[in-house]
């Protein structure tokens, strides 16, 4: 059943649940962070509207910097701003930033310890018809492997907004990953959010499996949990929005309680959330796992829902993975 303390949307399983893309939460969060702190500045590389940076630009034109199609320059200019008292947010698509400008981020933002926040929008195959060139499936891995970088993957627009505001309030490099498509807003203003804390959003009685996920596909995990409950298979669903630093304590706790784990992410299964969880479990309490995500292939053009289904990240696939991993216990 839904964990009451998570204070999720009452309409969570209704057809008319509100929907918005997580990038909307980023855009709103920028405006709010900008109101709170005059040092917040936003840089964008010719994708102002699609990264939802235009709301900030309209409100604070003096603090918005247009970079043109130049992600490497954007990261390095931001690095300079970030060591000079500003709080720069750099906005583009994840394939370009942190894709194209990865080394610039590594040296001048992470190693330099510059106070830059990196927004990678349009991540995952749910980008849809634009195709594989625009579908980042490696960004969590490449950013997670970078020392001094925090990595946050919000599950809906409200959580994205909270993450954006929270990132402005701490010093240091942060990467957040956002999606293009509208997805259900299943958390609420009252749901807790703290960087580095994972939350149990579904708490089955005597749970047999822990489903640990991040990003909008977490909703599919909830749909799966509901189905599984009908079949008398009890699970925990953990919202692990911060992939780095990982809430190891919570992960070990729920994993030990269940004895097997399924991870869920819209990212390559190599190097993402699943890998991060596996690293923690291997060290502390090895146990059977299944990994939902891109199985080391590029995506392609198509409608977002069709792609999620084709590449095995739907509720149905999560149910299958749960049943498979139970047998290995």
């Amino acid at each position: 059943m839904i964990n009451k303390i998570a204070k999720l949307n009452k309409k969570i399983f209704k057809a008319d649940i509100e929907q918005a893309p997580t990038r909307d939460g980023y855009g709103k969060g920028l405006v709010e962070a900008g109101e709170k702190d005059k040092n917040v500045v936003v840089l964008c590389a010719d994708l102002t509207e699609s990264t939802r940076s235009h709301w900030f630009k309209e409100k604070f034109p003096q603090r918005f910097i247009e970079m043109g199609v130049a992600e490497q320059n954007m990261a390095t200019v931001a690095a300079g701003l970030g060591i000079s008292g500003k709080i720069p947010f750099i906005s583009s698509y994840a394939v370009f930033s942190p894709g194209r400008n990865w080394e610039q981020i590594r040296t001048t933002i992470a190693y330099n310890d510059s106070n830059v926040k990196i927004c990678g929008a349009h991540a995952g195959v749910s980008v849809g018809p634009d195709g594989a060139t625009h579908q980042a499936i490696e960004d969590i891995a490449t950013m997670r492997a970078m020392p001094n970088m925090k990595v946050i993957v919000p599950c809906d627009a409200i959580e994205a907004q909270k993450a954006t505001i929270a990132a402005a309030q701490i010093y240091g490099p942060v990467y957040f990953r956002f999606a293009r498509e509208k997805t259900p807003i299943f958390t609420t203003e009252n749901s807790s959010f703290e960087i580095g804390k994972a939350y149990e959003i579904w708490a089955g009685k005597n749970p047999q499996i822990a489903i640990i996920g991040a990003g909008p596909v977490l909703y599919n995990a909830l749909l799966a949990a509901q189905e599984l409950e009908k079949e008398k298979i009890s699970v925990i669903v953990l919202n692990c929005h911060t992939i780095k630093p990982l809430d190891e304590k919570k992960i070990i706790e729920v994993a030990k309680k269940c004895g097997a784990v399924v991870t869920v992410e819209e990212h390559n299964v190599i190097g993402g959330l699943g890998s991060a969880v596996a690293e923690v479990l291997a060290k502390n309490c090895p146990m059977p796992m299944e990994f939902i995500g891109m199985q080391d292939t590029f995506g392609e053009s198509g409608e977002p829902d069709d792609l999620i289904e084709k590449y095995g990240m739907g509720a149905k696939d999560i149910i299958k993975a749960v049943k498979k991993v139970i047998k290995k216990k």
């Binding site: 634009d130 195709g131 060139t133 625009h134 392609e300 053009s301 198509g302 409608e303 792609l307 084709k310």
Partner: peptide
């Protein structure tokens, strides 16, 4: 163009 399974990807491959 741009449909699932098409050789005409949204961006050329």
């Amino acid at each position: 163009l741009r449909k699932l399974g098409s050789r005409l990807q949204g961006h050329p491959h």
